[in-house]
Design a protein around this nucleic acid. Structure first.
Lengths: 256, 256
DNA sequence: TACCGCTTGTGAACGCATGCACAAAGTCGG
DNA sequence: CCGACTTTGTGCATGCGTTCACAAGCGGTA
């Protein structure tokens, strides 16, 4: 099984179909990296670079060269042995695989500090993601444009999302509102959600949720800080517990 | 090797040391989930819930129950068979493992839209992460407090970070400035960095970087949108390419 | 045209993470 | 006090992702 992703490249099937078949087999982790490669490659293209080797590209992207080649192999064989990759060619193929050839209409819900920041990004970095609607509960915000887009009341979410064919919903509300907003987005046919609220969203299977959770990120870093401190203790004296916080991160002066 | 994370729990070694030994063995993925469990548990505690089973907790956290138990087992055995876990106990143990018992001073660099949003979070969600310094290149911003903290010029970054013992640096600058800011943070002794700039940072081995990349998140979602659309085509007619953008995401009206 | 050096693409091995299934261990009711 | 029931903690198998190492393929050169 698993269909042994074509090594023969028999010219029998149309290209489009073959790509789609392949797309299903790309590991999630690789997709994330492809997006990074795309950015690096775009930068190179702007700098006038036309060709690149896996070694160069991998270093710029901060990954292992072998991993990069394997990632690229998921989308096809577009390199030239002995030479490397053509930057333009790679860019266009990655864009196609990531679905960036069509536009994805984005709606941002919750126009607080973060919502403002998101709306003002203006079409989102790397473009192809036009923000077409903003929503908030606060009546005072409704009607006032942010980043050029007028804010609508949250009750209009279903109608407007359907009308503007929003494909990606961004939740930037306070935690208590997140699940309710999510439900409304889902019922408006939105199948992909980017969630900034520190809440675990419950969604049907056919909806894809990605979360960006500051608290979690900070806490992961905190874990590493703690681990480092412990290792330092460990290394400086082979002994056990001179007091686990002997590293002087104590007595810190915090100005509020 | 790998020291077979103690099943015997011989009471020979002090608890503290045992924990640290264990901390090193916790998989990164598990650490991220522990942070999520912690939030869910905190919410439960506030609601007056005192006990919870792995089944309940796992559902609230959106993970498999077995995985949850395995994650918790990395930090020790604090459940009661036949009963479940004591919420308070679990909270305090997770906090300890994540290093949340000490405060981690945070500096935010780049006071644009995002920087404002971050500064105004006010001590960061879940607290324990006091923002003690803000930086920007723009002289017009310097001196004006944001979220109660005055903005300093970026040239002071090294001195102030050292003085206030900043342990986590947050980069919210435009892409071109990110690497330079990163270098300065590192030379100020900051070993953990949270990077919002869409740039691959080059850092020494002893520095931990986590990145939050909106463009990448959006593109991953885009990939899934495309995959869904293809599957839909696939299912509705077994045929090939009725035009790859026949799904009507075209014709969108974008107001600038 | 034939050889040489370089870089890609990938088979295969390895390691980590996930999920299952069950023994161990506790509570509760009688 | 005992037996039945519940839930944890974990050994084991499975699958995914990463890394290695090398054959295949291409351009340049004589």
């Amino acid at each position: 099984m698993v269909s042994q992703r074509g090594e023969g490249e028999t010219t029998s099937t149309p290209l489009e179909a073959a790509d789609k078949e392949r797309a299903r087999a790309i590991p999630e982790a690789a997709v994330a990296r492809l997006a990074v490669y795309l950015r690096v490659l775009s930068g190179m293209a702007e700098s006038g670079v036309t060709a690149v080797s896996s070694e160069e590209l991998s270093q710029a992207a901060g990954v292992n060269a072998a991993k990069l080649r394997k990632d690229l192999s998921y989308i096809g064989s577009y390199g030239t042995r002995g030479v490397g990759y053509d930057v333009e060619v790679l860019v266009s193929h990655i864009e196609r695989i990531l679905g960036l050839t069509r536009n994805h209409s984005v709606a941002v819900v919750g126009i607080g500090n973060l919502g403002h920041a998101l709306a003002n990004y203006g079409g989102f970095p790397g473009r192809g993601f036009p923000v077409t609607a903003l929503f908030d509960v606060d009546a005072d915000l409704v009607g006032i444009p942010v980043g050029g887009i007028p804010v609508n009341h949250i009750d209009e979410i279903t109608a407007i999302c359907l009308e503007r064919e929003v494909s990606i919903g961004v939740i930037a509300t306070p935690p208590p509102a997140a699940q309710s907003v999510c439900d409304r987005l889902v019922s408006a046919g939105v199948q992909c959600i980017l969630n900034f609220a520190p809440v675990v969203l419950q969604v049907p299977d056919n909806v894809e949720v990605r979360k960006v959770d500051l608290a979690v990120e900070m806490q992961i870093l905190s874990f590493h800080v703690a681990r480092r401190a412990d290792e330092a203790v460990h290394n400086s004296n082979g002994g056990v517990s001179v007091g686990n916080n002997g590293l002087g991160v104590d007595g810190m002066v915090i100005r509020p």
